[in-house]
């Protein structure tokens, strides 16, 4: 399960809306070994594409060094899909290089609502997990759980041979 503060989710959604229709991407760092995302770092999408994202290599190095120096790790790696559902594409799975991270996907295809789902991607295997949004600003002990829709049967958005 991914437990994440509402203010961080709000910031991620705002980032995704801001960059729509291009895909937005970023990281939420947290103290190493705690599995708690605490520091939101919006990243530049060097691909500036509606269907592809890639961290800028120099920003990537800088942010990963900074996390190292602060004894943090990338707890959440997020990106948006701007015309399709919030489910990892084959590309997402092939490139997933942080087995310890929660891969958070936000779909901004609907103008008024966001679909937010979280996955583990390890050795090419995708496992969806519940997202628990914690409203720390109101009461740190009051926790609301949301299970954003279970995955439907595999949907393949890639192009066919024709």
């Amino acid at each position: 399960m991914l437990s994440i503060d509402r203010s961080i989710i709000d910031a991620i959604v705002a980032h995704a809306r801001r960059d729509h229709p291009d895909e937005a991407c970023g990281v939420v760092a947290g103290p190493a070994g705690r599995d708690t995302p605490t520091r939101h770092i919006p990243m530049e999408n060097a691909a500036r594409s509606m269907t592809f994202y890639e961290f800028d290599s120099m920003e990537h190095l800088r942010v990963w060094r900074e996390m190292d120096d602060r004894d943090e790790e990338p707890v959440v790696i997020y990106h948006s899909h701007t015309a399709t559902e919030a489910y990892p594409s084959r590309t997402d799975v092939a490139f997933a290089g942080e087995p310890g991270a929660h891969y958070l996907l936000v779909s901004t295809r609907e103008p008024d609502t966001e679909e937010i789902r979280s996955f583990r991607i390890v050795d090419g295997v995708v496992t969806e997990e519940p997202v628990e949004i914690v409203d720390a600003a109101v009461d740190p002990h009051a926790v609301q759980s949301y299970m954003f829709g279970q995955s439907p049967a595999t949907v393949d958005y890639e192009c066919s041979d024709r």
């Binding site: 990243m43 691909a47 594409s49 269907t51 190095l61 990963w64 790696i77 594409s89 890639e158 192009c159």
Partner: peptide, 22 residues
């Protein structure tokens, strides 16, 4: 320092073009 690129996306023809041109 070695870092696996963080990349992905909904993919499609545009992405293939982005990869090719990037």
């Amino acid at each position: 320092t070695i870092l696996p690129a963080v990349a992905g996306g909904a993919f499609g023809f545009a992405a293939a073009a982005a990869i090719a041109s990037h």
